[in-house]
């Protein structure tokens, strides 16, 4: 085990995969000479050369499209988009092309591309730079979607993503890049998709946290235990497609209550989808409606005071959890 930052774990994953497979190459805006807008790719151009670490113009749709074309013909591109907000310019290539190509052409072709990009609020970047779009990509059959929340997951999932033959949307989080965590040294350390992580065991309620919200959920759970005597089980699905629904349903069967925490918008969100699945497949296990904590249903504001109340913090998670117990006195007893 080595302690490193989330961004360093990503950098290691990229370097190891570039080393392992000569057909892996990186492409994105300012990833080479500049080392990446968030320095994830720092040092890679020096090590692997301009042919494999390719700085591109600001042409999101075409960058992804070139990646798709090269993936159709034998390469394994890892495309970095500066942030997930800019991936909206590439939705045509991601959805109409990457995601559907194999199906549309009757299985004649595969598209082993990874599109990496960070999301998330908290840096006062306003409505064009702060959103969380995992629900958007979760919506699309043909894509795999990863949302790592720890350094180890970032590394293990990215390596799996690069080795997988499907198009993968790999969603990092801006607020996590500098966080440290223990990461296994083994260069063959990978984490399979579709395997949730139980971050904390508990018997009273299941709290599912998506992307950075897995950490928010974990901190809320500690407070719930300390202040309210509620033992929450915290689950980080780590990938949304495929989804480890078994782990979630098993946990709900044990706790009989569930809260889903995500940073994105409520309508059509990850929580909306999960709540439906749990309702359909785990209804008999539920003692209360599935609770959801989401970003507010508004664009992300710039002003710090507004921004901070526009996405979930521990307090909202605690309140939503207590509400499931329908016991206000318990809440106020603290």
């Amino acid at each position: 085990m080595a302690e490193m930052r989330y961004r360093e774990a990503l950098n290691e994953a990229l370097a190891e995969e570039l080393e392992r497979d000569p057909n892996v190459y990186l492409m994105g805006q300012d990833i080479g000479v500049f080392g990446g807008a968030f320095k994830v790719t720092a040092g890679l151009m020096e090590r692997f050369g301009e042919g494999r670490i390719r700085d591109t113009p600001i042409s999101e749709n075409t960058i992804v499209g070139i990646g798709v074309g090269s993936a159709m013909t034998g390469l394994r591109p890892v495309v970095e988009l500066m942030t997930i907000n800019f991936s909206l310019l590439a939705l045509d290539q991601i959805i109409n092309h990457a995601a559907h190509m194999r199906y549309m052409f009757g299985g004649q072709v595969s598209v082993p591309i990874v599109v990496r990009m960070p999301q998330g609020a908290g840096h006062q970047l306003g409505p064009t730079h702060s959103h969380s779009f995992e629900a958007l990509y979760l919506h699309v059959p043909g894509l795999l979607v990863a949302v790592p929340s720890t350094a180890a997951d970032a590394k293990g999932l990215l390596k799996t993503a690069i080795r997988d033959d499907n198009p993968v949307i790999f969603i990092e989080h801006e607020s996590l890049y500098s966080q440290r965590g223990e990461v296994p040294d083994d260069p063959d350390f990978t984490i399979p998709f579709g395997l949730a992580a139980i971050r904390r065991e508990g018997t009273d309620v299941t709290i599912i946290g998506i992307s950075r919200m897995a950490q928010t959920a974990e901190r809320a759970a500690e407070q719930l235990a300390a202040e309210h005597g509620i033992e929450a089980e915290v689950i980080d699905p780590r990938t949304l497609r495929p989804l480890d629904l078994d782990a979630i349903l098993e946990s709900v069967a044990k706790t009989n209550r569930c809260v889903i925490v995500e940073e994105g918008w409520p309508h059509g969100g990850v929580g909306a989808n999960l709540a439906a699945l749990i309702g359909e497949q785990g209804f008999d296990d539920l003692d209360a409606p599935v609770g959801r904590v989401t970003g507010v249903d508004a664009p992300m504001p710039y002003a710090r005071t507004l921004e901070q109340i526009a996405f979930p913090h521990e307090q909202q998670v605690i309140e939503a959890t207590l509400a499931l117990f329908g016991d206000r006195r318990r809440a106020s007893r603290g």
Partner: peptide, 13 residues
């Protein structure tokens, strides 16, 4: 939609 893909094939070559 096919122009970027074509450039991608070119990149592979």
């Amino acid at each position: 939609g096919n122009l970027p893909l074509a450039a991608g094939f070119g990149l592979t070559s």
